[in-house]
Amino acid sequence: MIKSLRTPDERFQALPAWDYAPNYVDDLPGYQGLRMHYVDEGPKVGAPVFLCLHGEPSWAYLYRKMIPVFLDAGARVIAPDFFGFGRSDKPVEDEAYTFHFHRNAVKALIERLDLNDIGLVCQDWGGLIGLTLPMDYTDRFTRLIVMNTSIGIGQAAGPGFDAWRDYVANTPGFDVGKLMKRSTPGMSDAEAAAYNAPFPDDSYKAGVRRFPALVQTRPDMEGVDTGLAALDFWRNKWAGESFMAVGMQDPVLGPPAMAWLQKQIRNCPPAMEVVEAGHFVQEHGEAIARAALARFNLG
């Protein structure tokens, strides 16, 4: 059994703009004993699903400005926390965290909930993992909303990412909330505190430490073959609808990276440019969600 920590529930009380009931599953195949948290709102049958996947070092709270828009359109929203993040259990050993550890957990959740007519909503690691999923479920995924992310195919990510990876590796106790606030001008102290809520102390941050080290920036890294297969899928086989938004102030996964990704996704329209947004573009998510729904003729 994987040794893990569980953030006390009281850490998540009275968070701004976050009154969603928690849902848990603790017996996913291969993950017995680890409890995964997910938001599950909206109709349980007969409605399109938006599967919202967060990245590093955030959690489902990142989607608080998009979820209400999807719900108002009559959709169902599933927003899980990766293991190591949010209200999900947090393995304490760095070695527990691998690309396929995370990817297979999301696959198991999709199958457990028997999700269909899925719109993938992804950014950062939500995209590095999420963009590899539809090729395995071509009958389940129908839509894509993609923001400030990429596909891991073993290529260098540039000096900006290298500096971020080095910072995380050498700053074990960095303040997640402070990072989020610095990246999003106008974020309140209470919202920044919500991003710190999952981590009572540094022992809970193994997942935060590990994600940057797992990004596939060399061809010999785990997940590169999966990423290359996903790239072929998006170029040649994707038949669903797509919407892209880019936070223009992102120094790593901003306009150049997203221009490349847009060219890889079959029939992806030009990106919605969110001029004032940085990497965590969901902090401007209401307008993005509305524009995506209009693109999809939903709501």
Score class of each variant (00 low, 15 high):
D94K: 11
L115D: 10
P29V: 04
N148S: 01
H102V: 10
T226S: 13
N297M: 12
R64H: 14
L231A: 15
R140K: 15
L231V: 12
C268G: 07
D162F: 00
L214C: 12
G240C: 06
A47W: 09
D124P: 09
W59H: 14
H100M: 14
A192H: 06
L261E: 09
E10H: 14
W234Y: 09
V39E: 01
A47N: 13
I151P: 05
G127P: 02
R6M: 02
I153C: 11
R112M: 10
H102S: 08
N23D: 05
E95Y: 02
P80C: 05
K65S: 08
F99M: 03
L298M: 14
N23T: 10
S188E: 08
E191I: 12
T142G: 00
R182L: 15
V275T: 14
M221P: 01
K65V: 01
S88D: 08
P134A: 01
P256S: 05
K90T: 00
A60Q: 04
S203I: 00
L298I: 15
L131A: 03
A193K: 14
P219R: 12
P251Q: 09
D81T: 10
I288H: 04
P255E: 09
P68Y: 08
V25K: 04
G119S: 12
R290T: 14
E191N: 10
G240E: 05
V275K: 14
V274W: 07
Q282I: 03
P251T: 05
Q32K: 11
F70Y: 15
Q155Y: 05
P43R: 07
N297E: 15
R64T: 06
Q155G: 06
D139K: 13
V208C: 11
R143F: 01
R165Y: 00
S188K: 08
T138Q: 11
L179G: 13
K263N: 13
P48C: 04
G33K: 06
R235S: 13
V45I: 14
H54T: 04
P68C: 10
G86K: 03
N267T: 09
D94P: 08
D225M: 11
L113E: 09
Y195A: 07
A239Y: 01
I145D: 05
I129M: 10
L253P: 06
D250C: 07
L15Q: 13
R35F: 01
W125I: 13
R235T: 13
K237N: 13
P256F: 09
G227P: 03
A292F: 08
D189K: 11
K205M: 15
G285F: 04
T171S: 15
N116H: 15
V146A: 13
Y204D: 07
A169K: 08
L128K: 00
A105E: 07
E191K: 03
R209D: 03
L53N: 04
F50K: 06
V39Y: 02
K178P: 00
Y97H: 06
T149M: 05
N148H: 03
G158P: 11
P8W: 06
G127R: 02
